[in-house]
Write a protein that binds this DNA or RNA. Structure first.
Lengths: 218, 218, 218, 218
DNA sequence: TATGAATGAGAATTCATTCAT
DNA sequence: TATGAATGAATTCTCATTCAT
């Protein structure tokens, strides 16, 4: 008779166990999915990484696929949350564009799992995302902010006219995404270190030049 | 009237079974890996798709991983082969850039498996590519050609100075890659069809504007 | 009246399933390895013989090789356990030698699987045993006891001097082992039944004569 | 058109290819069966080791089992052949016994594959040997020779009476077999090097003492 | 809320053997 | 006599998932 479930642990530590377990599971799953993709991820490893019983994962998250969706949703929530704090509307248009580029770049660098997750979800043709009402409703407020910045820049005679904010947003994201997401492949192919401090600064600089070189008219 | 076992197929249809079988396996594997990633791909399905005995796959390609590498190498050979035929050196610089953007864009559209493969390989941190001496030696001659184009453009007073051809190459690829590779996710998030004929033309146009808007100085 | 699934077995029959399952697996594996060697043993057959799900074997014992080691360790524990109860120190030296010969002989007859296991392990050059800290630490206390018996016999003027207990132990074991382990081959070669009651008595007698004829000096 | 089968190789090298191939296969198979047992042996590896096409093995030896029997038969032929040259009848009885012990000991040391083969065949309960008319008819002439030696020794007043030559033969073989065949296991268990030059001399000496100590009466 | 035991369906890989030439 | 291509049937091992408590 080792464990006595009848003796409850102190009140202040217990109540949060459920939330804590769920968070641990999501954290572990994020790493696992990012490391191995959906097909390569192992529920066993997630349980081990989260230090919970495997059965518990099923208790909270129905299945592997649902768990993946939960992970994906949380990842989107997280980036959207940070995006909202950029306050692009409060700075001049050129600075706003710089900030957006830098934010995207840095977020991807600090959250490589996010890139992995995106890639995995795309391999599966957004199958999970499509099921999510959450993510769809959380579509980037950035597009609107970006539209406003472009408009402001044009009115100020700084930016060219007719720029589609969605296209630009995708371009900005793509410039960072391809470089960072494929850096292992690219480094190998070009036989050049792309992730050193200098290389990273050069890339950021190049992206700013590219985007602003396009946008700014004189 | 598929195959009638009693009627042996004419000699010219099956000149050398070995080569044919290997090609069939590679074709099938390409599709399977592109559809499901490395972890999700099934050797059984590859055998079925190639219409060969599963054992034969192991006869020619040691293991799943080696098969994946073989597929990857062939995919790179293929795109490099087509790139070589662009003859960018023989047209004026602006046209050369346009051609490169259009080629990349169209190649990705026509070969979505290539994008998948890239994504999968990156998920695995270029583990397979690193093992390949083949791919490393086949690094794009495009970088040299591109350098020459940029140089020529600059000397003609058309292009800005100091553009790194590798950065530009990565940017051009990234602009197409992110849009096309993540189109399922992006379509869902932005609730907008990105793959219709009109949308595709707009994207191509945007990419040209962006890159040339940056490069061309007057 | 084997098992009636509708009537749940009483609690005391199945006190802890885990222990029971592991024991069942080890029992089944012992027979399978003894019957077919390591290479010829089939995990499927072990599962069937143990009446457990094949997966469970991997749940408790990592792999076929680890299972083999576990079987081997248990077999050694078993024979060592019985050896300890021979109390050779409490009988006169000649009787002690007779007991040791008889014990070895009978143990091998009653546990032919032990002979098989030994043979198999040797085919593999003690690969598994070497990995085991357990077996190495359990080296027969018999060697010490045997040394004491030889010493006692010598002091009583019964036994010759200078007998190495390890050599003698190996000889006693070898006399039984070769006869019993190779009886199928030997029976065939000599065209003579070696396992009939009479033949067995003759062998035991021969071994006693041989060993005591060597040891006893008058 | 690389190979031209129509151009035959020079006459003096060709004719013996068939015998040569068979010998190569048997040699390779002997090593493979000795190294891995019957169940663990791989036809692929045998082909590779013999440097012949796998198909050729089946051409000459029907199946894996038949090949094993062929290997076994050749091994017995070999040891029997050497035994015949011992000429035990031409030396005095004590020397004859010494020669037999030494021969057995050295043959096993020089032909560890023979020990492996024996062990494997026994694991399979002499299944193959029983099928062989060859080996059965080749039962050791040594038994007769040994009987004659024992008789001669007894008549000379040297040896004890009533020694069964088969029992003695088995004992002599067993004393070497167990030590040498199980040396990996025994070395591990007793934590003592049993195969060093000194240890080997000691064993040979012990066996002579044991057998002659038993046989010789004064 | 939590968990150790258990499983069916499949996964990659292996193997002895045969086909066609 | 020799061989490269091909295969069906296993074989070890894996995996997401469920049971029983």
């Amino acid at each position: 008779m080792p464990r006595t479930p009848s003796t409850p642990r102190p009140a202040e530590t217990r109540p949060r166990d459920a939330d804590r377990s769920q968070k641990d599971i999501l954290d572990a799953a994020l790493r696992e999915f990012a490391d191995h993709g959906l097909g390569g991820a192992r529920m066993d490893r997630i349980a081990e990484r989260a230090d919970v019983n495997k059965r518990l994962i099923y208790y909270y998250f129905e299945s592997k696929e649902s768990l993946f969706l939960a992970v994906l949703e949380r990842a989107y929530e997280s980036i959207r949350g940070e995006e909202r704090q950029l306050s692009l509307s409060q700075v001049d248009p050129i600075e706003a564009i710089r900030r957006l580029i830098a934010f995207t770049w840095n977020y991807y660098i600090e959250h490589p799992e996010f890139l992995s997750l995106l890639g995995t979800e795309n391999l599966h043709r957004a199958r999970h995302l499509r099921r999510s009402t959450k993510v769809r409703s959380m579509h980037s407020p950035l597009v609107h902010t970006l539209a406003e910045v472009l408009e402001r820049g044009h009115k100020a005679g700084l930016f060219r006219a007719g720029v589609d904010p969605v296209q630009l947003y995708i371009s900005i994201a793509g410039l960072s995404y391809f470089y960072l997401g494929n850096c292992h492949t690219l480094s190998t192919i070009f036989d050049r270190d792309l992730m050193g401090a200098k290389a990273r600064l050069e890339r950021l600089s190049h992206m700013n030049d590219l985007v602003l070189g396009y946008l700014v008219r004189d």
